[in-house]
């Protein structure tokens, strides 16, 4: 059942007790009593499925405000996975970003069945573009633009690769956008569905975008794209040396130490079967067109 089939009151009641939501290949039990967090989840995850109570849950998470004196004095929110607090509490006003970061922590630190890259990843017809992220390169922004142009979101943050077959598994969460990129996306796409805006977080101003197409499926990586925003540059796509790409991907993987040689070979296999391109751009719509042309052209390769 889709989450938006529940009316908001029922949803509120359920999530206070703990509600199972399917996020790609994970079933997450979310429990919270903070109303702002509840309404933001209701909005941002409305296309996700709720799962019955008797399903096997991957992560039991909660986000709550302590019932101590801190309820009145500089109120805080804390994130827990099964009673354990992996990250520091934040001011109550930043409870929702804490929830999203906490969920990322769970996957990046527990889902070692996958080789995990810090990358945005989208797909069309089971063929995926992997966009490894150097901070500030604008991978989330570009990912948001492509999702608005018909690509399905697999993840804007973590690419989960099965080392045995090299396929990437979905975990579509709302796309997190920061600072200038919020304005960029909202001016380009009037239908962009933004959640609440948070100011003065550790990453500046932050908001989340509901992916209109959050149904990314298990896919094969066909293109590895290194996007770089450069305000002086025209749209340029340049093929990249695969050896250099290998080093970058290896540095980009959170848990390459877990897989060792197996991980190294998995990266080799990904690169063998994909086209590796660097993209420099200043005009985002132009860049989207260029990427669409690139992927159309090599579709039958």
């Amino acid at each position: 059942m889709n989450l938006n089939n529940l009316d908001e009151d029922t949803f509120k009641k359920k999530i206070k007790q703990g509600l199972n939501i399917q996020i790609g290949c994970f079933c997450v039990n979310i429990k919270t009593s903070i109303s702002e967090v509840i309404s933001n989840i209701y909005f941002l995850y409305s296309n996700h499925h709720c799962i019955t109570e008797d399903a096997f849950v991957d992560f039991h998470v909660s986000i709550n405000a302590p019932k101590s004196i801190r309820r009145w004095f500089r109120p805080q929110a804390y994130f827990e996975i099964d009673g354990y607090q992996p990250i520091e509490p934040l001011p109550l006003a930043h409870a929702y970003p804490l929830f999203e970061w906490g969920l990322n922590w769970c996957i990046a630190n527990r889902a070692h069945q996958y080789l995990i890259f810090h990358a945005a990843i989208i797909e069309k017809e089971g063929k995926a573009i992997l966009m490894p992220g150097v901070p500030g390169a604008g991978k989330s922004t570009f990912c948001a633009a492509l999702v608005h142009d018909g690509w399905s979101l697999i993840s804007d943050e973590l690419a989960l690769v099965d080392v045995l077959d090299g396929k990437v598994h979905p975990m579509p969460k709302p796309i997190s956008l920061k600072n200038e990129s919020i304005e960029v996306i909202s001016s380009l796409y009037s239908d962009a569905a933004f959640g609440n805006i948070y100011h003065n977080t550790s990453k500046g101003t932050l908001t989340h975008l509901r992916a209109s197409n959050a149904s990314g499926r298990i896919s094969t990586i066909k293109w590895v794209l290194f996007p770089r925003y450069d305000k002086k540059s025209s749209t340029r796509l340049i093929d990249e040396n695969k050896g250099r790409a290998h080093i970058e991907l290896l540095n980009n993987a959170f848990n390459s130490n877990v897989f060792g040689l197996q991980g190294f070979d998995a990266i080799n296999k990904i690169l063998e079967h994909s086209r590796v391109v660097r993209l420099a751009y200043s005009d985002i719509l132009n860049a989207v067109k260029a990427v669409n042309r690139l992927t159309e052209r090599s579709k039958n390769v």
């Binding site: 096997f56 991957d58 889902a111 070692h112 069945q113 130490n257 877990v258 897989f259 060792g260």
Partner: peptide
Amino acid sequence: PTFPHSKYEAAINVARAHSNF
């Protein structure tokens, strides 16, 4: 058949890396 074997496989992957190291 629906049992998520990946849960303990993930932990085994980490333990194997610890052991190798």
